[in-house]
Design a protein around this nucleic acid. Structure first.
Length: 746
DNA sequence: GGGCCCGCAGGG
DNA sequence: CCCTGCGGGCCC
């Protein structure tokens, strides 16, 4: 080679040729291996700025890419590198990146690439190949370019690279894995194949990291009470005007009633801005109409077995303790509501983790975002609004427990900590929350039934993007919704099933080509087919790599026993001698299994809600999970270090599989249709986009039955005599629209 | 300000 | 269908 005599700088920055330490301007970093070289000592120096920007050291490039017109960045470099002025400046800039101790290696690589003209400095390329969810995608980076894997190929040693990077590596004379130096078979060198399982994994990680956790082109709309008046109104049944007994007006936002997290612009067809932190409303009914907190009376919105979406701080429970960015919330119940009461200051029995309290506990366990509204009725808090009800943003429940309340009976307690991208209404900061250490809670001493989150939270802070966001897909609504089909501008009513979707999220590519189940300890052959380790080894069990031959008492030369890939008959004999688990793929599958398990847990009936049973259940679940994980990890280690012996691997594999079996990837038959279109209507007749449209057409909310027959059970329990109010009219002062038979609502 | 009342909404 | 529920208005 032309550059045989070239040598880089050593670890101290000393040029290994001239034995001098070159000044910064004279050092050039290889774009591939980032090794510094002394420019003056290079036999072939980069001639232009662009080539300096894209320079590869003699070790990494066959012919120096000086005149390589094929570099895609030719134009882009003009923007970034040229703006750097001279190669000296460029190199200085690169060095600055290298020297920045605050950057991770991955971030350094990304910045280097950006500077070196990979994408002209625009976020575009980095974002398209980069991944929003760093944590999700971290394991899917190419070891050569440090970018998210593009057209991934897998070496027999179980390492994944971009096809382009791999080819380049081979072209430069690489004979061994760029990561672990294990030899690469010639067949793979000449014809690397894309590993579709990795493709699926990367796609999934990307989809997961989009804010909605779903296909962003599809926004799910839930239309609720759309035919109602804009304002709360008094039904015929109600005897009195005024909001005390009024029915809610229409819901202006299109979130599902069990929607978690902030209400975004996409679900705010009226204003197209979503519900912003600090917005406030006259009262709970108005607050409800904007979706921040739906229940009219209850403080907790949620479903046991699913989670809680929002809470209201209104001073209803004296044990509450508000510190703004964090607060202690008290569960519901424990009160005697007989006598037709809706609330009662007096506790008269213990609260339990059931119903809404259990819903909160699930949000805690999962790390779901919980919307918080504060009402002016919370008099003891400095953070309560002057009047009305205010949306204060997203909080997470970090812990929950039970303890004796001030009235002596046990209450459920929740530690809420703010985690919103917008600053709280009371803070002078201009930015949202950063993760903060948990406050020390004195009352935790002596608390019982303590639970805290064991798993990674579904809503979490992304250090790279500096935002709180979904790090797992947000829970799918259990309610039917409308989906806006962008293509034909129709709205389709969808019914989505949580369980189905969880299953359906498993790409077919993740199933073993032998057992058809979700792979355990996946192996990727040189022909890019994926199998469970145990399955593939099972195919060749009892076979040896060589055949002893004898003829007439003479021992002949042993013959190689050819073993072919079960799917394509490719010769994988060499691969089988030392098959390595594709660990990136495995961790992805493991994550997926956990999610699926969680989803199915939630789907599974949680009928038995006696407090103790629930406690036990939760405890058991978390314990088991931990135990399983530990086992799996142990087994993993063992199997990877062991030299492969088919029979011996079986036992441990069996164990692994047991924990996770019956998960059939791509099992679309049984319940594969995750979405059932029930009805499609043309959008445009104001169903969604115009909330203040013409007269409502349904009479659902019209009560025609005489009041006397409609007493609730609670009303029956006590005698309610209000004869004097028979003519209870609508006082002119009441802003409420009162429906009567004359009203044009039919 | 405190007590009482009761229609609504939603969970189960 | 029954039960629950950190509302809101009005009366005292």
């Amino acid at each position: 080679m032309a550059h045989v005599g070239d040598l880089p700088c050593d670890g101290d920055g000393m040029c290994m040729l001239c034995k001098e330490k070159p000044p910064e301007e004279e050092r050039l970093l290889c774009r591939t291996c980032v090794t510094p070289w002394h420019v003056a000592c290079l036999t072939v120096k980069p001639e232009t700025l662009a080539s300096a920007a894209d320079w590869e050291c003699p070790d990494c490039s066959a012919p120096p890419p000086t005149a390589d017109a094929g570099i895609p960045a030719a134009a882009a470099v003009g923007v970034t590198a040229a703006s750097a002025g001279s190669s000296g400046e460029l190199i200085a800039a690169i060095r600055a990146i290298e020297a920045d101790a605050t950057l991770s290696e991955a971030e350094k690589a990304r910045r280097r690439q950006r500077l070196l003209g990979g994408d002209g400095g625009a976020e575009g390329e980095v974002r398209t190949r980069g991944c929003e969810g760093e944590s999700d995608c971290a394991s899917f980076r190419c070891s050569i370019c440090i970018e998210i894997l593009d057209r991934p190929v897998t070496t027999p040693c179980g390492h994944n690279f971009c096809l382009k990077c791999f080819e380049k590596w081979i072209k430069q004379g690489g004979h061994s894995c760029a990561k672990c130096r294990a030899p690469i078979p010639s067949k793979m060198k000449s014809q690397p194949r894309i590993n579709l399982a990795i493709v699926a994994a990367v796609r999934m990680a990307r989809a997961k990291s989009t804010p909605s956790g779903a296909d962003p082109s599809k926004v799910y709309h839930f239309v609720h009470n759309q035919n109602r008046p804009d304002k709360a109104y008094t039904t015929e049944r109600a005897k009195r005007a005024g909001k005390a007994n009024a029915a809610s007006g229409k819901i202006f936002v299109t979130i599902a009633p069990d929607h978690f997290g902030p209400i975004l612009a996409e679900n705010d067809p009226i204003r197209n801005q979503g519900v912003l932190v600090g917005e406030s409303w006259e009262d709970r009914l108005e607050c409800r109409q904007w979706g921040a907190h739906l229940p009219h009376v209850a403080g907790i919105a949620g479903q046991s077995g699913y989670g809680a979406q929002s809470v209201a701080l209104s001073g209803g429970y004296e044990d509450d303790e508000d510190h703004g960015e964090w607060f202690l919330y008290t569960g519901s119940g424990g009160r005697d509501l007989s006598g037709n009461k809706r609330t009662n200051k007096e506790q008269s029995f213990d609260q339990k983790f059931e119903k809404l309290n259990e819903a909160l506990r699930i949000s805690c366990k999962k790390g779901y975002p919980v919307r918080v509204v504060r009402s002016h009725k919370e008099k003891r808090s400095s953070y309560a609004p002057e009047g009305g009800v205010r949306y204060d943003g997203i909080y997470r429940i970090e812990k929950c427990w039970r303890k004796a309340g001030t009235q002596g009976f046990k209450v459920c307690r929740y530690l809420f900590v703010r985690c919103d991208n917008e600053p709280a209404p009371w803070t002078s900061e201009t930015h949202g929350d950063r993760p903060r250490p948990l406050p020390v809670i004195k009352e935790l001493k002596g608390a019982t039934d303590v639970s805290e989150r064991k798993e990674t939270p579904a809503w979490d802070f992304d250090e790279n993007e500096n935002v709180w966001k979904w790090t797992k897909p947000s829970p799918l609504s259990r309610k039917p919704a409308l989906v806006h089909n962008v293509d034909d501008n129709t709205m389709t009513v969808l019914r989505r099933s949580y369980k189905k979707s969880a299953r359906q999220r498993i790409p077919r590519e993740f199933s073993c080509l032998i057992c058809q189940k979700l792979m355990t300890q996946p192996l990727t052959t040189s022909c890019a087919h994926n199998f469970c380790k145990a399955c593939l080894e099972g195919v060749f069990v009892g076979q040896s790599f060589v055949r002893e031959r004898t003829r007439g008492g003479r021992t002949l030369r042993t013959q190689k026993n050819i073993m072919n890939c079960p799917t394509c008959q490719f010769d994988i004999t060499e691969f089988l001698k030392n098959p390595q688990i594709n660990r990136d793929l495995m961790s992805c599958i493991e994550q997926l299994q956990q999610q699926l398990k969680d989803a199915e847990e939630e789907e599974g009936s949680i009928e038995d809600k006696s407090n103790d049973a629930a406690d036990e259940k939760l405890k058991d679940e978390t314990d088991n999970v931990e135990a399983d994980d530990a086992d799996a990890a142990d087994e993993k280690m063992k199997n990877e270090t062991d030299n492969v012996e088919a029979g011996d691997a079986d036992a441990s594999d069996e164990k692994l599989k047991d924990g996770t079996d019956n998960v059939e990837a791509g099992d679309a038959e049984e319940d594969g249709n995750t979405v059932e279109a029930e009805d499609t209507v043309k959008q445009g007749d104001d169903t969604i986009n115009n909330p203040s449209n013409g007269p409502p057409k349904t009479r659902k909310y019209k009560r025609k039955v005489p009041v006397e027959q409609k007493g609730t059970r609670r009303s029956k329990r006590i005698k309610i005599t209000r004869e004097g109010e028979e003519q209870g009219d609508n006082s002119p002062s009441s802003p409420l629209h009162v429906l009567s038979d004359n009203d044009d609502f039919e």
